[in-house]
Nucleic acid binder design. Structure first.
Lengths: 318, 318
DNA sequence: TGAATAGTGTCTATTAGACAATATAAT
DNA sequence: ATTATATTGTCTAATAGACACTATTCA
């Protein structure tokens, strides 16, 4: 039948088909001054020229895997490659696959399937001017417009963060109408290129869920850290104030999460307080028991997303 | 910069590049006679001719999204398309994206990036002979060899089921050496084509984690079901015996998980016992609190996977 | 000195899980 | 009758979270 014939043809003359491009995009998150930031690049060429976008690029066919492409893009856009210190910094980055996005209209040029990755990085130096990373910069996620450009069945499913359909068929590649200010300060949020707002939103959801069950919050910190620093990571990613005492005891009670170094910080807190003991990441790869997010009994209504969809399931429906 | 130039070229003459193909593969799970089964197709053509593989096929560039391609492949291979009853059955299938696999060597023909999907289906009729699904069949997962063909940094990471790198760079596309029998009965496990053993293993891990936090176990059952039937789903997916009494009370205590219908089954259990009340899925899309797997304090050592990797993190390492 | 913070102790409501008991239906 | 099973009840250990307290350091 014709599916089989297509397979056969694809095997021996792939160029006979309508081509598909594969790109890799990276949602790279870090903490700066206690706030969550994401790495963005300013597009030098159309489409979406001048708009901010997730760092990414085309997969080098036949030469690299998806994981390798993502690591390469991250290193290029942060300028972290070449030097020994850069490699050392890179070695602490956590990089995992987030999901693939493949609606035909997501890139006006052609059908582009993008494999998105999620990176957790400690506070890195600003991308250097004069390098290929000159057009890259860290942005606070609160300054970005995370509303997807088009309505979609899977959009705005903040609850289903344990995996789920992310392809988003019904989304539109058209830029949304000018957004009203969302920031408390009244600043107009930055609109991202392509469907990158959606990808970023999915990445943030994944990050929020991930630090519940995995020790990856430590990937936002340097090798040695204090419990209050770790708490700051959780507070920034979850956007929740946590109880210092309970958090402290809870972290220490999870086997393999952190390991004491036996020493303390040189100074106390900026506004007073005793010196904190330092720790480094333990050998656990899963937290048991997990650090569950506080149950937000007050699901503060977001005027931008009128109502959360009743079901985030990706069930096939007519 | 040559990356930028490549982008420009790709925009206007994608065929100038080494091509990449995009396929969609589906890990379709169902419960038959209390055991977990997966849908496989026998390959009619090389490579891996005659071997069993996950159902899948090439993305129709410019015509469909990844989600749509996965739904199409699933419908084609189960023979569930066309008729009204088939569409009704399809409407109850849960389909979500699992991950993308893209090492250059995973298909001997060319660089093929495969986007894998995970499907939960109620007990479906056998694929019909005489249709395009004639070469498809449900197989018990216990009859399959799940050991990845090659060692890989992310392979055998059973713990990290909340997302993570799945691309598997260091894997090999070579078929592994003949497997020793793993089945209790001494049957030789079936080896799958390509890296499908790895994809299937990842799908099983995802399924096991997913039913903890989502009500998707109900997607394995028909519209109305009993609590013991739901328990059978959990026992099959987790491969764990669960305490009937505690399970029953726990399920009913999770708001929105199940909703009583007010009636009971027509007959009692096959081996006696009262009639069970029937329920249908509630409107919750996330289980709060979750149904956590029993903490297996006895991590029975698997001779095939010598030692679980100390860390399942996908951290970039030199 | 005063304010802020690190770290510990204590109490309570909730939950997971072990175990028991009862009622119902198949054989 | 006997056995298996659905469903409910009870008890205990573990946990989350609220709150309080002490000690330490910065300004």
């Amino acid at each position: 039948m014709d599916t089989t014939e297509q397979e056969w043809l694809a095997a021996y003359d792939p160029r006979a088909f309508t081509p598909v491009a594969v790109t890799v995009d990276v949602v790279a998150l870090t903490l700066r001054h206690g706030r969550l930031h994401v790495l963005l690049v300013e597009r030098a060429l159309p489409p979406y020229q001048g708009r901010w976008a997730l760092p990414g690029g085309f997969l080098r066919a036949g030469e690299e895997s998806l994981d390798e492409a993502a690591a390469r893009e991250f290193a290029e856009e942060t300028g972290l490659h070449g030097t020994v210190e850069a490699e050392a910094a890179l070695s602490r980055i956590h990089l995992e696959q987030l999901g693939s996005y493949g609606i035909p209209e997501r890139d006006p040029r052609m059908h582009v399937v993008s494999v998105a990755y999620l990176a957790f990085a400690p506070d890195l130096p600003d991308p250097q001017a004069g390098t290929d990373a000159a057009h890259a910069a860290w942005h606070p996620v609160t300054a970005l417009d995370l509303r997807p450009a088009g309505r979609s069945e899977t959009a705005g499913a903040p609850a289903d963060t344990h995996g789920g359909g992310v392809d988003g068929r019904t989304g539109s590649a058209e830029p949304s109408e000018p957004a009203e200010p969302l920031e408390p300060g009244g600043l107009t949020p930055i609109e991202l290129a392509f469907d990158h707002a959606r990808i970023l939103a999915d990445g943030l959801d994944r990050a929020r869920a991930k630090i519940e069950y995995s020790p990856l919050a430590t990937a936002f910190l340097h090798h040695d850290f204090t419990i209050p620093e770790l708490r700051a990571v959780y507070e920034a990613v979850w956007d929740e104030k946590l109880h210092p005492g309970n958090f402290h005891r809870k972290v220490l009670s999870v086997p393999g999460f952190v390991e004491g170094t036996g020493s303390t910080t040189d100074r106390g807190g900026a506004r007073g307080g005793p010196r904190a003991r330092t720790y480094h990441a333990g050998d656990a790869c899963l937290l048991h028991p997990a650090l569950l997010r506080p149950t937000r009994s007050d699901p503060r209504p977001d005027p931008a997303t009128p109502a959360p969809p009743p079901s985030a399931r990706t069930t096939i429906r007519p």
